[in-house]
Design a protein around this nucleic acid. Sequence first.
DNA 1: CGTCTGGTTGATCTAGATCAACAGGAGTGG
DNA 2: CCACTCCTGTTGATCTAGATCAACCAGACG
Lengths: 238, 238
Amino acid sequence: MSQNCQKHSCAVCPMRATTEWADLGTEELALLDQHKFDRDYRAGEVLFRQGERNNGVYCIHSGLVGLKRLDRDGNTVLVRMAHPGETVGYRSFLKQSDHILSAEVLVAGHVCRIERSIVSRLLATHPDLGLRFLRHSLEALADTEQRFVQSRTWPARARLLHTLLIFNERLGKPGQDGSSRLTLPVARRELAAIIGTTPEAISRLVRDLQNEGLAHFDGRAVEIPSVDELLNSLPVLE
Amino acid sequence: MSQNCQKHSCAVCPMRATTEWADLGTEELALLDQHKFDRDYRAGEVLFRQGERNNGVYCIHSGLVGLKRLDRDGNTVLVRMAHPGETVGYRSFLKQSDHILSAEVLVAGHVCRIERSIVSRLLATHPDLGLRFLRHSLEALADTEQRFVQSRTWPARARLLHTLLIFNERLGKPGQDGSSRLTLPVARRELAAIIGTTPEAISRLVRDLQNEGLAHFDGRAVEIPSVDELLNSLPVLE
DNA sequence: CGTCTGGTTGATCTAGATCAACAGGAGTGG
DNA sequence: CCACTCCTGTTGATCTAGATCAACCAGACG
């Protein structure tokens, strides 16, 4: 199991290749290892809260993190998800501002916090690190735009199917007949937040999909008889 | 009048201070001037279309540009607006991909296109130029997230008021009694696209605002008796 | 004149939110 | 062990913001 309370080492981290820190040398990695704080997080814990002072960036080793934005009325919207290998909180760091979003752990996992000062130092000495963050922010922008467009033009049902397929991409165990099984990483409430609707609506949609035979649900366990069929019932963006 | 068919010069461009090209030296500016294509655009013209090959970046001297995304069904969503001093199309350039959005001129103005190769050359020699683009993309991200959250949590009426205030910020002529007059830069159809609703809905909302005395409309001309009162009737994000 | 485009209004429809009730665990405490 | 509460998920009934459809009007322009 990858989750434990041991301090993880960046030098041997298998996720590193897909992170912004991929190209660092051994000395820099040692620096990271010395000055980082890492630990296991349980679902529901908060990495940082919107409006808080930025105290570094968080590199996700395992689990799943939701990035939420809330307004004064207490309305909270899940704007994006961050997966293992992603670093979050870099934005307010680069802007030298307070955190713009809140980061909440959706699925328990291990996360490393890298101290402000270290990131600054590395950024100053490694120009390509900045470039990596640029690339990341461009991807985040594209992703957010996509979610924005979908929330306007797709009905809730299509959005549910879409996220189902995304989760299946990451977590699904495909059968050889085009079917697939997976366990949803989140409860209904979070699923609703991701899709941008209410738990009640999710419930009804799930029932409908079940009746149509497109998917079978048992709690968080999902069985998809034909992934292709799900794909076909999507508006197909872009 | 700032719009004409003459070739504009970056060296003396008054907008340059607010663009990504602010810190360039005189030689670099001369390079830009030699290799750029600039001209007046009328409302409705398209700078580039989603899916097209990137052939450079566009620096907006005057006017207003809408960035739209469309899916297969022909649904089109205005994701962001770009104002004078902003450069658009840099994203697909940096990602070396085809254009992700379409850019359509909403308000006639002058726009300079800067050739791919030149941008590459400048980026390679001027690291702070990349940093500027990073900052710009971070702002675009924040803006898009804001619009995303608003489209979920605010009713159409609040969104209309919000964009009204934004336009007032840029174009309004304040009276000394807290009132303000402005001319909307766009027709109802575009206003609807910006807010994310239909022209019919805009029409009704406008009528309501009029009845409540919050604003008076005559075509594109708007008169706001009390800007403060408009501000107060907003949910106040963040 | 007719035709076209942009804006307004009215009537209708519907996706999805909201409100309310309830059922099944999972603890927790006596 | 039962009684209690707490929490998640499901279902039903109702409500409503806003989309859709359709008609109409006023200029603009050939």
